[in-house]
């Protein structure tokens, strides 16, 4: 048990604070929703009803999609783009998809390489891009979910004000959908750009997200 916790410290810790904050979001979200209901002489809803409603899921999915887009783009962009001096970048001479030797593929696999890395053909092609593929799939699915749940919330608001409801294809062209989307994207892109450039001149001793404290500012791609 102690070994399980130590071996999975990062995924356990972040999984735990994810659940705690999701519960916090549900409680405060339900409270906010019921406050709105009271202002409009509507009936309050239970917490259980709220967490199974489109209002809650539109908010959750809106944030998920931007986070997964952030990582998807970062994984893709760092294949081709470098940032001199950054620990978040690879070295300038390794731009691109790299050689089989650098990626330990073909004749360069080792006995304990993953099976699909050794398999060759389509399986190695799929496995070679599996992180980007899965992150992209989660991004697309959560963005789709945001648009579907967001439309329900939007239409409920429209009905409240005796306005016409919209179809899904129409909803994805509305300012509401794009405002919800872009307000999340902008913060993700700034955070990524900041991390790339701040890690050139700033350090955190002990973190692999930083260069070693004594590493020169010009040194690119050296985890601490």
């Amino acid at each position: 048990m102690a070994r399980f916790v130590r071996d999975n410290g990062l995924s356990l810790a972040f999984g735990a604070i994810f659940l705690a904050t999701l519960i916090g979001q549900a409680i405060s979200g339900a409270d906010t929703f019921n406050h709105g209901q009271a202002l409009h002489n509507g009936d309050p809803i239970s917490l259980g009803h709220y967490v199974t409603s489109a209002v809650f899921w539109a908010d959750v999915m809106e944030n998920w999609q931007s986070e997964y887009l952030q990582f998807t783009l970062y994984i893709f962009a760092t294949i081709w783009l470098i940032q001199k001096g950054s620990n978040e970048s690879k070295k300038p001479d390794r731009v691109g998809r790299e050689s089989d030797e650098q990626q330990r593929l073909g004749t360069h696999t080792q006995p304990d390489s993953p099976r699909w890395a050794k398999a060759g053909g389509w399986r190695t092609t799929v496995f070679s891009n599996s992180l980007l593929l899965v992150m992209t799939a989660i991004w697309i699915a959560s963005w789709l979910a945001q648009s579907l749940a967001g439309r329900i919330v939007y239409n409920a608001e429209q009905l409240d004000h005796q306005a016409a409801t919209v179809s899904w294809p129409t909803y994805v062209t509305t300012a509401d959908f794009w405002n919800r989307t872009l307000q999340n994207w902008q913060s993700e892109f700034l955070a990524i750009g900041s991390m790339a450039i701040l890690s050139v001149f700033l350090r955190q001793r002990g973190s692999p997200e930083s260069k070693p404290v004594g590493a020169p500012h010009a040194e690119t791609a050296s985890s601490g």
Binding site: F4, S11, G15, W57, V60, M61, I138, A141, A145, I152
Partner: peptide, 30 residues
């Protein structure tokens, strides 16, 4: 590595379940 693989499966299962729920809810609820 067995426990790490288990964590991987827990994360994937949680994410897929949440996405599936949200998409189905978005399609069915009117």
């Amino acid at each position: 590595m067995r426990s790490v693989r288990m964590m991987f499966m827990v994360y994937i299962a949680l994410i897929v379940a949440a996405l599936a729920y949200a998409i189905v809810l978005g399609i069915l609820e009117h």
